[in-house]
């Protein structure tokens, strides 16, 4: 699952995850989506960019 808060600054980021995921899947640039969602600090941005949704992978087993 995507972290509720940013590990570094504590800002609430999980509420933007689904929109981010959908928009990136549609072919938008991650940079533009993050700017649009108002996630401006690089501590929060790296979590979006590097996240792997393992819950989807594990649920098969």
């Amino acid at each position: 699952m995507f972290p509720v808060r940013c590990f570094t600054c504590g800002s609430l980021i999980s509420r933007h995850w689904e929109e981010y995921k959908d928009r990136v899947a549609k072919g938008e640039k991650p940079k533009d989506v993050l700017d649009d969602l108002g996630i401006k600090r690089y501590c929060c941005r790296r979590i979006f960019l590097s996240h792997v949704e393992t819950i989807d992978l594990l649920s098969k087993y």
Binding site: M1, F2, V4, L12, S14, R15, W17, E18, I55, D56, S59
Partner: peptide, 11 residues
Amino acid sequence: AYQDIPIVKLY
């Protein structure tokens, strides 16, 4: 405070 925070995904 916000209604759209994901807690867990259930299958």
